[in-house]
Design a protein around this nucleic acid. Structure first.
Lengths: 140, 140
DNA sequence: TTCCTAAATAAGAATAATTGCAAATAAGAT
DNA sequence: ATCTTATTTGCAATTATTCTTATTTAGGAA
């Protein structure tokens, strides 16, 4: 996600509203992979009157326009990710931590593998790895 | 998951209760990757008095004992999977369909790749692919 | 077999996350 | 400046799940 939020919105055919800009801004200010709740809290620091439903609404819209994406979690709380660059996720077995994992070499291997080996009745659009394990030498 | 439910339970140190057996049985009778709600409905066909909380309880226990596992979904509804054999998932962009994807060759490639290329501060325990795309020639 | 105890279940209230709805507001095209 | 439609608001409502307390039960021990 680049940083001219107004342009990002209008280029996707969305109206530029203060609420939408505030949600986009919030992604730079909270931890990576925030929950809706964390985004709401962050937005309300500067814009206390934004309605909860509005933010859920905006998040849905941004996902639909592929400006952000959802992160699948093992538990039920939905998280969002403003990094649209292709990457994978490291999931910690011992905490709720999720880290980004970039690996161009891996992406090539997968792309190559699936371009040669088609899956029956399925056209692949994207592949994401869920790498599950433990962080070593790390405080949460 | 083999099919002697009583053995599966006691080998994991769990008491063999009619409720637990009914939950395990239900996996053979509902669609793959059922939601908790679908399991509850299936169980209640024969055992109408099983409490909702009990089934959530049992599902948690079975996941903990690795008898079943959770399937991460893009939306927030949790699904379960009684296939413990290593496999990946195909996610449909156009419906809620999730299909299993087995690929030994792919598993070897990944295993080999990650055994040579360690990730900083992270020890990998399992790798799952989320393959997102569209089913072709298929009715939902 | 009967008894005992920890584990499991029932019942239903409570919570947390998310969605729905009707009315009010505001962005941006004309 | 006006108009039209998308967007936001303010809750209420829903959904999925968890919690709590009392009751029941499985399986080991006597």
């Amino acid at each position: 996600m680049s940083h001219n939020f107004r342009d990002i919105l209008s280029e996707s055919g969305l109206k530029v509203t203060p609420q939408r800009v505030a949600v986009l801004e919030s992604f730079d200010l909270v931890q990576k992979h925030p929950t809706a709740e964390q985004i709401i809290a962050q937005v309300r620091l500067k814009n206390p009157d934004v309605a909860t439903g509005t933010i859920y609404n905006i998040l849905d819209t941004l996902v639909e326009k592929k400006i952000i994406c959802r992160v699948k979690t093992d538990r039920d709380i939905m998280r969002y990710d403003s990094t649209t660059e292709k990457h994978h996720h490291l999931y910690c077995l011992e905490s709720e931590t999720i880290a980004d994992y970039y690996d161009e070499e891996l992406n090539s291997i997968l792309e190559n593998y699936f371009s040669n080996k088609a899956i029956d009745n399925f056209s692949v659009e994207d592949i994401k790895l869920q790498i599950v394990g433990r962080f070593t030498n790390r405080n949460y």
